[in-house]
């Protein structure tokens, strides 16, 4: 709106076309293609139906629907309260906040990476990571959620995974606080105007969410490379 006032009277190029038939015809075609494609696929591939449910005999592996397998995969690295509840909640809240956190006026209504490198990079990273986890959970996890490459046979006797250990509590707390502290403070040193441009609250929320996403990945790496079970282990809560 502000932009328009400054520009005074601008000839708005009228690129409008009639919705009928320009838009409606395409929608109609899309609907036909989708219907035909869906019916064709349904004709050749049956929807799964296993035996009658049996509470006494657990499926192994028991898998959630594929779109939740990223979260189930995260269970390997985190306790259920985080992987199954807090992480998805943070993702949803983070998504809802996107329009209010991203105050870059450029790139509104057209494709551009150059004008909004940060936003696009972060979003694409999260998007791809979500689907990578889903792929691992769907295709590479066998009985007892053991890892199998696509070319490996699923078996029940795989080598026992190495024992896991927790970080000492003080070290864990220091690392965790140091991570968030450094993550919040360092960018301000490298890009002085960032606080001014974003405002304090927006900055803290954005970086907090970003650091949590990165931290989630880091924890997975720690687990895989250094057999770390918990960074912070207490009788009440483990992270």
């Amino acid at each position: 709106m502000e932009v328009r006032e400054k520009k005074e009277i601008v000839e708005v190029k009228d690129d409008k076309v009639f919705a009928w038939p320009n838009l409606v015809a395409k929608e109609f075609l899309a609907a036909i293609f989708v219907t035909v494609g869906l019916l064709f696929y349904s004709y050749i591939v049956d929807a799964p139906l296993r035996e009658l449910s049996n509470p006494g005999q657990a499926e192994n592996p028991a898998k959630a629907p594929w779109y939740f397998l990223g979260l189930q995969e995260a269970l390997v690295y985190f306790d259920p309260w985080y992987a199954g509840v807090v992480l998805p909640t943070i993702i949803i809240i983070g998504l809802i906040l996107v329009p209010y956190l991203d105050n870059n006026p450029k790139g509104n209504g057209y494709y551009t990476v150059k004008e909004r490198k940060f936003a696009v990079t972060v979003f694409i990273f999260g998007y791809i990571f979500w689907y990578i986890l889903i792929y691992i959970g769907t295709a590479l996890r066998g009985p007892f959620w053991a890892f199998f490459w696509p070319w490996e046979q699923w078996t029940h006797d795989f080598p026992t995974p190495p024992p896991l250990h927790d970080m000492p509590l003080p070290l864990g707390i220091i690392l965790m606080m140091g991570f968030y502290f450094a993550g919040l403070v360092l960018p301000v040193f490298f890009k002085r105007d960032i606080l001014y441009k974003w405002g304090f609250i927006r900055y803290v929320l954005t970086m907090g969410l970003l650091l949590t996403m990165i931290g989630t990945v880091i924890k997975m790496v720690l687990r895989l490379e250094f057999s770390i079970k918990y960074i912070i282990a207490t009788p009440w809560i483990n992270i």
């Binding site: 799964p48 139906l49 296993r50 035996e51 009658l52 449910s53 049996n54 509470p55 005999q57 657990a58 499926e59 028991a62 898998k63 959630a64 629907p65 939740f68 979260l71 189930q72 259920p80 992987a83 199954g84 509840v85």
Partner: peptide
């Protein structure tokens, strides 16, 4: 109400 759905919902709701 087959094994697939039953155990998938078990895993999901156990969260």
């Amino acid at each position: 109400w087959d094994q697939l759905g039953y155990w998938a919902i078990t895993v999901g709701t156990n969260m």
